[in-house]
Design a binder for these strands. Structure first.
Lengths: 365, 365
DNA sequence: TTGTATGCGTTATCAT
DNA sequence: ATGATAACGCATACAA
């Protein structure tokens, strides 16, 4: 007597099930499932009855049940340092939008840029709730590539790890840094300071951007002066302001500053304002990231726009492709476009340097 | 002969189940469940064997299965306009941290401050994935209170709706606005402009803050001049800059500006910088929200700190209380503390006005 | 203190 | 084109 009806206690809430719909429509539960999942071969009349019943009963599929059955959740994780950092807040925004268009939900995880938390997030219980992970570490290094060898798809963001077992979306930091530096050189600056360097680091955005900076100097025949390079471990406004203050206190001649990201550059702007230094008159400033702030700082900040939308879209697409088709295939590396956004902080006697363009997509190994 | 072993195909991935653990530990699945869920009455030896098996097999509970069975997900939703707005990014950060401490996961949902999306999020399929919702609408109004009558707990944030069927965490906007205005009056300003008003609106942060502004003026015997109040529909830096520009162009006498939030105030700062107006010398500026930017603007921005941590913590606690105990009980309204943070944008001849303090928690209805 | 058995709401495999 | 039924992995009533 395995009847179709349940005598059950209402479990969760409301709890209209496929069974209820099936009963009302006078069909089997399988047919309801077929309708719900858009299975094509259903007689129009049947479909109509089922849809009527769904409507009338206010039925909605139970996602937990579907997940249990299918072993998928329709959720992807996004691990980032913290949302308080504007760049990552804006990145999260873009990723959520991109995911939405693909019908996927994003679960954000903050690591605080703390090494242990960055590692922990890879093996956390929460991974069970997600079908894959978009992973943007800040504390890990190349030696941690093996940590990415996890039993679910990962898309790596950023410059901390290369060659790990994951698709990787990044940008051409060296070229972009070279391009902004060339922009500064183009408006006649020769004593270009750097704020935010990480001494002794071979990987990471800091190292790559400094490399681009040096390449530009070299190409222009300008000598590299270590006295112009200021450290800043964390890339916050505060550390940028402090680094800038140190440079000013040191008394070295400076006519431009390259903040390795916008937060640093905004901090530097702040310190310059404190000292009543005219920007860009005495010192021009550029940043990197094109966060919204950059457009509203005083003066507005020239910066590198890394194509966040593109990065987000690409990351989601790569991840979904792995999730949907888990067959082995070489990991991709996608290099996003960038663009120099010229604003007041480098305005004036500008010689309008051509903006570098980089191919949107290149596939390695 | 319903054996304990399965011959099954490996379903999802790895897929160590409670059954596997039970087999290895030589106990029943029930015992494993008990151990996993911290049931106290278990013989130490048994517990040890089970824990060993869990460790050895790398077992982790299947959250989907648990959800299906229990009708709870351990996830709470957080609906907000967008993460690109620094205030909401920082709020999300705080909410995630607070939730983490309670062992709860946060799922962020962006509404774009669009009315339909704000309504849709209340009935979305995603609500099935969450046990409750922290809801911060910007486009709804008091007439939408009924929309909050949903079959799951909601904690309302902000000033758009009052008296809806939900706990409500808010702050004393009127008092806080009055306090910053008094601060401006205290440093001798009398022609205080407002940026960001919403004409004809009776509720919402704009209306409340303007009310506080007017109360302060009145108490100080300063006449209210409508010519000093500039509209700005969206509270962005750009709209703040535009509103400020309009005020300046209008030629009214101004010696201070109250940006109804920090983005507006930063935009105003930007416009003032554009026109070479000295801040705070000629015009003092205050904001509202205490986003991180405020501390690094040039000049740094005096503002109202709304106690984000407290708001986040309170919201999570209220929500979890409802989730855990769904028995009817009157809805709470919690009014968070605020604090005036004095910075350069009002520095100088300051007469250091006492900072208003508001009781941390008051329970209504 | 621990084991057995049932069902949570779906999807998938067979049939028909 | 549709129906019956067996899992998915877990929690729990009930037994022991």
């Amino acid at each position: 007597m395995n009847g179709a009806r349940k005598n059950g206690t209402t479990p969760g809430r409301g709890a209209v099930t496929m069974n209820d719909v099936a009963t009302r429509a006078g069909v089997s539960i399988k047919t309801v499932s077929n309708v719900v999942n858009g299975y094509p071969h259903i007689r129009p009349g049947t479909r109509a009855r089922v849809e009527e019943a769904i409507e009338a009963l206010g039925y909605r599929v139970n996602i937990s049940a579907r997940n249990l059955r299918q072993g998928r959740t329709g959720i992807v994780g996004l691990a980032l340092p913290e949302l308080s950092l504007p760049y990552f807040a804006e990145l999260a925004d873009s990723v959520i939008r991109a995911a939405e268009q693909r019908g996927v939900i994003v679960l954000i995880e903050q690591t605080g840029a703390v090494r242990e938390r960055e590692l922990e997030v890879l093996t956390s219980e929460r991974r069970q709730l997600t079908d894959g992970l978009i992973y943007s570490p800040l504390a890990l290094g190349p030696e941690d590539g093996a940590a990415l060898d996890v039993p679910y798809p990962v898309v790596l963001l950023g410059e901390r790890i290369f060659g790990g077992p994951a698709d990787h979306v990044t940008m051409n930091n060296v070229e972009a840094a070279r391009a902004v530096t060339e922009h500064l050189l183009g408006i006649g600056r020769r004593r270009i300071a750097v704020v935010g360097a990480h001494e002794g680091e071979a990987v990471g955005s800091a190292a790559l951007r400094v490399r681009g900076y040096r390449e530009a100097l070299e190409a222009a025949g300008v000598a590299y002066d270590p006295a112009l390079v200021a450290e800043a471990g964390l890339w916050h406004r505060s550390t940028g302001a402090e680094a800038m203050a140190r440079l000013l206190d040191a008394g070295v001649e400076i006519d431009a500053v390259f903040g390795l990201n916008d937060a640093l550059a905004l901090g530097a702007l702040h310190a310059l304002h404190d000292r009543r230094v005219d920007v860009p008159g005495e010192i021009a400033v550029v940043g990197f990231d094109d966060i919204e702030d950059a457009a509203y700082a005083s003066p507005t900040l020239t910066t590198v726009s890394p194509g966040r939308e593109q990065i987000a879209r690409t990351a989601i697409d790569l991840l979904l492709a792995r999730i949907q088709d888990s067959s082995e295939r070489p990991y991709e590396r996608v290099i996003a476009d960038f663009e120099i956004v010229e604003r007041e902080s480098t305005a004036g006697q500008s010689a309008s340097v051509p903006v570098a363009a980089v191919p949107g997509r290149s596939i390695l190994a």
